[in-house]
Design a protein around this nucleic acid. Structure first.
Lengths: 338, 338
DNA sequence: CTGTTAGCGCGTTCAG
DNA sequence: CTGAACGCGCTAACAG
């Protein structure tokens, strides 16, 4: 009378037995019913319902050439709402194509990513969509992946020529920084990821180009490029705002750094520290940005769309409607002024 | 020379061939190498590396009794950061147990949830974790699920006695509302989900009890219970704030309603409309709540922890270390004053 | 220590 | 229109 290990899932044989037909007839009925008499189909479906039968997709995909209907998705940080939306975009398009996603969180760790990819391939995924970590990428090389198509999102991997969806990181950062320069700022701080992170490097490049072109000096004392989370970002912002000559504006290269910077600015305002408090340009949107105590310009883009686009590239590959060459799609960003 | 359909994944046979052993020896080596000579193991592993072989997990789990190592997770709205964190919690604990998650987004649609569950079972998941929709739940009845254990999170399903993780919705809402009453408010609006949503009903119940006990009348004109997204919440907030006698405080039953309400309050402040502007109590945390133009009290809880706890209940069931009776875990919430 | 046999659930192929 | 045989990749159980 234990709860478990008793009656496993019913098989096609049991359904066949109950319906008084051969397993083959059940299979055919489930496959659409071609070449099966309607009344027999009735009996089969009745047996299916009675037994609570579900077709075993794993056994099904055992046959070579049969797709598993699974797409492996690895993300660097699901706790970041940005990647939640990304995953949703992938999931939606996959569902439209009758596929399911297997999701793993790499936590920005290359070893974990490698494990995830191994497991995904072992489960016969039809394709992979990754936001790659910045570590070693040996496990993503084509000869390791065999036939399984790979799409990268958000970041490129050096030396890996595969379908990729990127944002216009450089252009967005450039335009965002220019908007600060045009507003009269010359002392503009930078908060971002370390340059080994692909987007970190690209977004810094946009900032740098705008500063150079605008004739504004880049002071290393107000450039902080190693914050991966909100707490670190707050500390970095604090350090530069406590300088004798603090920045009058801050360019933040991503959501986590923006939140950290604003948290610190808010603290200073509440503590009654003297202003002026810095204006902020943020790469990545966040909710209620219009209610901030300092003007916040948003370099906005759609994570869900990024996910959808990545999935589209993958399915184009799977349908064979993509040609040999790896494709890169760069999605535009929009700038929203306060 | 086409990219595809050519060299499928190598099989255990090919590895065996290359290593000059039988498939069984490869299998044993991969399973840990018991009863295989070290030098033979070497040869096998070399062949594995050379061919880029991955064990086919689907074929493996074909054998009865073998777990698939997959957990099916269905969520109502991945775009909500709250559920992203929930998924992360589940994923983490699953990974600790060597399992992977298959993730689907039900979008609050019972039909879609049913499809997802069918597919999950067809893929031989070891267990299911759902944030159930509020629709028909026929497909979750034990006889439909067979041996597959189910854990519900966040919401209960009427008539379904299964392991469940809930928040202390009633207590949190009660205490949050009491804090407003103690601050002198008596005209307190309510924004939330329709009562068919489990949490919607529970959170309203806490609000209602506090209001009754506090002797504060509940005015239907400032109770709005049908907002599922931010835009609808904004409209509802606007409607009650434009009344001749608007509420002096608002209790918001979830993240989406809170953002909507604050967006509307912010708009009124920017437009220079006369105050006083309402204080807000929010069930669910959000970032930068400390920077809002009106005081915001947070009824806080940890979505990631909710996910972890749900996964723990599931694995307790799978390990057989849980007894027959369905368990309910109610996680506490904490109140953070502005 | 290693190999052979058999069968998991399903669908393609070929007979009726 | 229906069924029987075979094999997909893998591993317990049983030789050797």
């Amino acid at each position: 009378m234990s709860t478990s290990r008793g009656a496993r899932q019913p098989t096609i044989k049991e359904v066949a037995g109950l319906a008084g037909v051969s397993p083959m007839t059940v299979s055919r009925t489930l496959a659409g019913g071609r070449n099966v008499r309607p009344d027999v189909q009735e009996r089969v479906m009745a047996a299916v319902r009675e037994l609570g039968y579900y077709r075993n997709e794993n056994a099904r995909s055992l046959r070579p050439g049969q797709p598993s209907g699974l797409v492996g998705v690895a993300i660097t940080n699901l706790a970041n709402p940005y990647y939640g939306n990304f995953a949703l975009g992938v999931e939606e398009v996959a569902a439209e194509h009758g596929r399911r996603i297997i999701l793993g969180n790499s936590g920005e760790d290359a070893g974990r990513e490698r494990q995830l990819v191994s497991d995904f391939i072992g489960r016969q995924v039809d394709g992979l969509i990754l936001v790659p970590t910045s570590g070693d990428a040996e496990h993503l090389r084509p000869e390791r992946l065999g036939e399984v198509p790979l799409v990268l999102a958000s970041r490129r991997v050096p030396g890996l020529e595969v379908d990729t969806v990127l944002l216009d990181d450089v252009g967005g950062s450039y335009r965002g920084t220019v908007s600060l320069l045009e507003a009269g700022h010359t002392r503009i701080g930078f908060l971002g990821n370390r340059s080994s992170v692909f987007t970190g490097a690209r977004r810094y490049a946009g900032y740098e180009r705008a500063m150079l072109e605008g004739g504004a000096p880049i002071d290393p004392a107000i450039v902080a490029r190693d914050q991966q989370d909100v707490a670190a970002a707050s500390r970095a912002a604090r350090a530069m705002l406590e300088l004798p000559d603090p920045p009058t504006a801050i360019f933040s290269a991503n959501n986590r750094n923006t939140i950290g910077a604003l948290r610190e600015i808010g603290r200073r305002i509440r503590d009654g520290l003297p202003g002026p408090h810095p204006a902020v340009v943020s790469f990545d949107d966040f909710e209620l940005s219009e209610l901030m105590p300092v003007p916040v310009t948003i370099i906005d883009h759609d994570a869900q769309l990024l996910g959808r686009e990545a999935a589209r590239l993958l399915f184009a590959r799977l349908d064979g409607s993509a040609d040999e060459a790896a494709r890169t799609v760069e999605l535009p960003v929009s700038i929203e002024f306060p």
